[in-house]
């Protein structure tokens, strides 16, 4: 339906009979996944890209959508088949009538560290500019929660959309924002710059579903095999990344565009520490997401897990021994 409706819109908006050319032809093996920005949580996708994906019959392409919610819009347009995004923005979209499912998670905790350019009291003064990726994204929700804990509301500060963690860090350096939630490799860079740590959400070990693979339900129903192949490639990427440090660091250097050994090292350590190995979506994490969304007055139309999460692909890969096979092959538990 997504491809069809897209075709329809072309003719509607342009009144132009070129619709047929737009629909991706012969898309059986091509698989595009959107990401919000290159960061530690996306590494498994980068590891799967290329060789491993090819082995599982996919031509995997990573598209930068610069922001979670924007990526979901792109996903709904049918331009990409999956989006790597958090549960909270996905639930928001489903509340408004989208029909998306998370089929696997990469990060089941809230890993942000919020940095400010200088020390102040209170740590985030009223009226200061705070950078997020896009409205409604994980960064936005994290900021809402933190502000609430500080007794502030979103109206007390100026929240501005800056894009992914590297753009947010650049904005801090340039003085365009006072504070922003960061991820590796920007955390290391922020420490080097001498920025002030406002709060380390990772230390708090909040159960959360921070990032995962999101797919339209209708697409999933028709392309179960492609989705399974993708998850196989994704999992194998994860295991290979965890076992082959040298290769993994090469991929990090290439995809994160850095030659800084320290940044690469910290990013890889973060990856080992944070990644969910079997890609299953944390149930307490999901429940926490629902609870917190309600707290900050974002309606949750349905908090039934089955309306947002589809664990069948991962379950079948567990059952048929694919994951335990990987554990043996890469000798990782």
């Amino acid at each position: 339906m997504y491809a069809l409706s897209r075709r329809f819109f072309v003719s509607l908006a342009t009144g132009f009979a070129i619709a047929g050319a737009i629909a991706p032809a012969g898309a059986q093996t091509s698989f595009k996944i959107g990401i919000s920005s290159p960061s530690v949580s996306i590494l498994s996708v980068y590891f799967a890209e290329g060789e491993i994906a090819k082995k599982h019959g996919l031509n995997l392409e990573v598209v930068s959508a610069e922001g979670g919610t924007r990526g979901l819009q792109v996903l709904m347009s049918g331009e990409i088949q999956a989006m790597h995004v958090g549960l909270a923005p996905m639930v928001q979209a489903n509340n408004k009538g989208a029909d998306l499912r998370m089929i696997g998670a990469s990060l089941n905790t809230l890993p942000f560290v919020i940095y400010a350019t200088k020390k102040s009291d209170p740590p985030i003064p009223k009226g200061s500019v705070i950078g997020i990726s896009t409205f409604g994204s994980e960064t936005d929700i994290a900021i809402s929660i933190v502000l609430r804990n500080m007794g502030l509301t979103r109206k007390d500060v100026e929240i501005t959309q800056l894009g992914g963690t590297s753009q947010r860090f650049a904005a801090l350096v340039a003085g365009r924002a006072f504070a922003a939630p960061l991820l590796e490799p920007s955390i290391t860079a922020a420490e080097e710059k001498g920025f002030t740590k406002v709060i380390d959400l990772y230390e708090a070990r909040t159960p959360w579903v921070f990032d995962g693979i999101v797919i339209p339900r209708e697409w999933l129903a028709k392309n179960q095999q492609t989705a399974t192949n993708f998850m196989k490639a994704y999992l194998e990427g994860t295991y290979k990344g965890l076992s082959d440090e040298k290769w993994a660091k090469e991929v990090i250097a290439r995809r994160l565009r850095t030659r800084d050994e320290k940044v690469i090292d910290f990013t890889y350590k973060d990856y080992q520490r944070l990644m969910t190995r079997d890609a299953s979506v944390s149930i307490p994490g999901a429940e926490n997401v629902f609870a917190r969304l309600k707290e900050i007055d974002l309606a949750v139309v349905s908090d039934k897990l089955a309306d947002h999460i589809d664990s069948r692909v991962i379950d079948s890969l567990k059952k048929d021994g694919f994951i335990s096979g990987l554990e043996k092959q890469y000798s990782i538990k």
């Binding site: 919610t69 819009q73 928001q92 408004k96 009538g97 100026e158 501005t160 959309q161």
Partner: peptide, 21 residues
């Protein structure tokens, strides 16, 4: 397109981001 606070353009932009067509 940039910034938050108030304004019709921002309202449109935020509504788009939160799927409020």
């Amino acid at each position: 397109l940039y910034g938050s606070a108030t304004g019709i353009g921002i309202m449109i932009n935020m509504a788009g981001s939160s799927f409020d067509t």
